[in-house]
Amino acid sequence: MAPKKQNWAKSLTMALNLGTSVAAVIAIGLFGGRWLDARFQTGNLLTILGFLLGAATAMKILWDRMMERDREANEEHQEPGKK
C-alpha cells in the first residue's frame, strides 16, 4: 500500500504554532509576574512564580503536541489493518 500523503499544511501550522505558543506563554508568565510585583511591591517573587508558571505551560503545550502526534501516528499505522 502506498504511504499516506503527508498533510503539509497541518504540519507547517503545528510547527508555527508550537514555537510561538511556547514563547508567548513564557512571556505572559514573566511579564505578568513583573507587573504584579510592581503593583503589590512583592520584590521578585511573582516574577519568578510567573516565569515558572509560563515554563510549566510551555512544557504542557509540548507534551500535548507530542501526544497528539503520537496518536495520529498510531492511527496511520492502524489504518492498513482495517482493510
Binding site: 505558543s21 508567548a24 506563554v25 512571556a27 505572559i28 508568565g29 508558571l53 509560563g54 510549566a56 505551560t57 504542557k60 503545550i61
Partner: peptide
C-alpha cells in the same frame, strides 16, 4: 495553565 495558553494565542 490552560488559561495562559488561551491568552497566548491572540497575543
Amino acid at each position: 495553565l490552560n488559561l495562559i495558553e488561551e491568552i497566548a494565542h491572540p497575543l
